[in-house]
Nucleic acid binder design. Structure first.
Lengths: 146, 146
DNA sequence: TATTGTTATACTCTATAACTATA
DNA sequence: TATAGTTATAGAGTATAACAATA
């Protein structure tokens, strides 16, 4: 049996993913190292760092949220100085959002803190479980964007 | 290098987990097969099925939420007929929550639907990615409860 | 006095719909 | 008329604090 058909034929698997992801998201929301930013705001900032400057509309598309939600995230991020706003050169309806140096520094700091947080949590996992988690990340990422 | 130290020394990993889990949770919330129940309500119902009848307090502990949150979930689940409420035999402060036959039937149906939904989504993944996801589930589950 | 569960209240996140400015 | 973005509004989910019933 192939890996794909094995997964499809296991009806408990999808439910387990859903439950675990929901619970983990809830826990992360509370134990986040930088409580002044939500998970969504942090993910958006991370996207801006990785993919470079873009318009709010493009960012909304990337993050799989509606435009009004991005507007709110950006108000927050701009107020805190983590992103900057500039007029689009050719189309005056558009806006170009760029991560600031402060924003980059925050992400760096955030990574260090999360590394410590998750490292502590991982002490409760077996080495094989940790390796499995690591190996599944590309799939999880892809799944979350598909 | 061991798997554990490899993970700890990769500062991008924790952030990737967090972003992916957040985004996936958001998407699942919208594409859930049974929109009358939230992820949290469904997870609670699943726990009641797997672990058997318990008090609201125990359920809150299992689901990693505060008691008032469980109260709201249970009101919803009871209104819809998916759980039943009975007085505790020895302690009249407590209540015993049991999943109903309707609740079990819902979970069965939900599994079938989610299986189809995730199967479609998995067509965009490589077989190795699917296998990796499957292998990581125990770790994800454990992580979400630690 | 401590514990179980609920009610009251508030906050965050996200959505849809309506609006403004520009193309 | 169509598009990019914002504002207005509402709903879901969760939290903390205060309360009632019982141990």
């Amino acid at each position: 049996m192939s890996a794909a058909s094995a997964l499809r034929s296991d009806p408990a698997l999808a439910g387990a993913v859903r439950d675990a992801v929901g619970r983990l998201g809830r826990r992360m929301r509370h134990h986040a190292a930088h409580p002044e930013l939500s998970l969504g705001q942090l993910a958006a900032l991370r996207t801006l760092e990785r993919r470079g400057a873009m318009s709010p509309g493009e960012l909304a598309e990337h993050e799989k949220v509606q435009p009004p939600s991005i507007t709110k995230m950006l108000i927050r991020l701009e107020t805190l100085g983590y992103v900057t706003r500039a007029p689009h050169l050719a189309d005056r309806r558009q806006v170009v959002i760029t991560i600031s140096e402060t924003g980059k520094a925050l992400l760096d700091d955030d990574r260090r803190r999360r590394d410590a947080w998750i490292a502590q949590r991982l002490r409760g996992l077996e080495p094989e479980e940790i390796a499995a988690l690591r190996a599944a990340l590309p799939a999880l990422e892809k799944l979350s964007r598909s």
